[in-house]
Amino acid sequence: MSDTLTVDLTIIQQWIAAKLEPEIVEQKLKESGLDAASISTHLRAFRKLKNAKKLQAGFICMAAGAFLGFVSCLLTILNPFPDLYNVILFGLTSVAICIICLGMYLVFE
């Protein structure tokens, strides 16, 4: 029979809110007297939950940058504001690329 290890998500969310490092969390778990398998399960859940927030922020940044790039592309092609052509082509596109790169950094970190 295999024992299923349960992880208390409220405690993990408290650790994330307190911005604890994984080493400190591991020490706290050892002090509470948990076995090695339970400690590794808790640490895995802690890291997964901690990285989920970065992943969500990364996808939001990539989507916002892609939308801004699309708008920049449309405004460049349609050229509704001839005086702002260079600002739209070079400025808005550069901002969109920077936001996309920030999002990719958050996702792939």
Rank of each mutant, 00 (worst) to 15 (best):
L78T: 09
I16T: 13
A63W: 01
G103H: 01
G69P: 00
S40N: 12
I39T: 02
H42Y: 12
G91P: 11
L84W: 12
L78E: 13
C98D: 12
M104W: 11
T93Y: 01
L55I: 02
N51Q: 08
V7H: 00
V87L: 13
I88W: 02
A36L: 13
M1D: 11
D35S: 08
S94Y: 04
S38I: 02
L9D: 13
V71D: 15
K48V: 04
R47S: 12
M62R: 02
S72V: 00
A52F: 06
I16M: 08
Y105L: 08
I88E: 06
E109W: 07
K48G: 03
S94T: 14
K28R: 13
G33Q: 10
F108Y: 11
L92W: 02
L49P: 06
V107W: 03
L84E: 11
C61P: 03
L74R: 10
W15V: 05
D83Y: 09
I88Y: 05
Q27P: 06
K28V: 06
S38R: 10
F108K: 06
N51D: 14
T93N: 12
F59H: 08
A17R: 11
V107Y: 08
I99L: 15
A64I: 06
L84F: 13
Q13V: 06
T6N: 14
L55E: 01
F70C: 06
Q14N: 12
I97D: 01
M104E: 04
K30F: 01
E26K: 01
Y85R: 05
A52D: 14
K30W: 00
L9N: 14
Q13F: 11
I24K: 12
A57G: 03
A18F: 09
K28E: 13
A63L: 11
S72N: 07
S38C: 09
I12Q: 02
G69M: 07
L34N: 10
L92A: 14
D35H: 04
A57N: 11
I39K: 04
I24Q: 14
L84M: 14
G33D: 04
F46N: 00
